[in-house]
Structure formats: C-alpha cells, structure tokens
C-alpha cells in the first residue's frame, strides 16, 4: 500500500472516530460538523452506514450490559493480549465474564 493511501486511510479513520464520539456523546454542535466532513470526504453512503453501525452497537452494548451475558470462551482467549492494555478488563461489565 502506498504511503499516500495509508495517510488517506488514517485521516478517514479519524473522521469516523470523531463522528462516533460525537454521536454517542450526543454533542449536537460537533456532530453537525463531523457529519458534514464525512459527507464531503467519504460520501453519504458512508455517513448512513456509520450512523447505522453506531446505532446498532449502542443497542447491542446496552443489551449485553443489562443482561450480564459473558463473552464466549474462545473470544476471551483471543482478546486476552489487548484487553489489559486497553483497560477493557476494568469495565464494570468485565465482571460478567472474568468472575474470580
């Protein structure tokens, strides 16, 4: 992959993260800006799909946290190397899986 493509992908990822942060955080003013940036840079289809993904995971995350479902054993093993460094093991909901 060319360096210019890598830089472009990196910039696009930052736009998507910014949009996600503002939508989950319900920051209307900032959300409006990041929405427009996505449309200008990546197009309407990406905006729609990104909004659908945030909406879907906001539903799924709440369901998981409200029903106390544990993570599947295989996934626990596969994610062990990065969970600690990302602080994921400290979430309240980690207790549903990592019971003593």
């Amino acid at each position: 992959m060319e360096e210019s493509e890598l830089n472009s992908r990196d910039a696009n990822s930052k736009l998507l993260i910014e949009f996600t942060d503002h939508l989950v955080g319900l920051d209307s003013n900032k959300l409006s800006d990041s929405r427009q940036k996505i449309v200008d840079t990546l197009g309407y289809t990406v905006l729609v799909e990104a909004a659908a993904t945030v909406a879907t995971f906001s539903m799924l995350d709440r369901i998981a946290n409200a029903t106390g479902i544990p993570l599947e054993t295989e996934m626990v093993k596969m994610s062990a190397d990065f969970r600690e460094s990302l602080g994921i093991n400290n979430y309240y909901s980690a207790g549903n899986t990592l019971k003593s």
Partner: peptide, 9 residues
C-alpha cells in the same frame, strides 16, 4: 462505540 459504552462483551 463499544469502548465508549464500556461494553466488555
């Protein structure tokens, strides 16, 4: 999104 919602699952 899951990171912001602190969802371990």
């Amino acid at each position: 999104t899951s990171l912001l919602n602190e969802c371990f699952y």
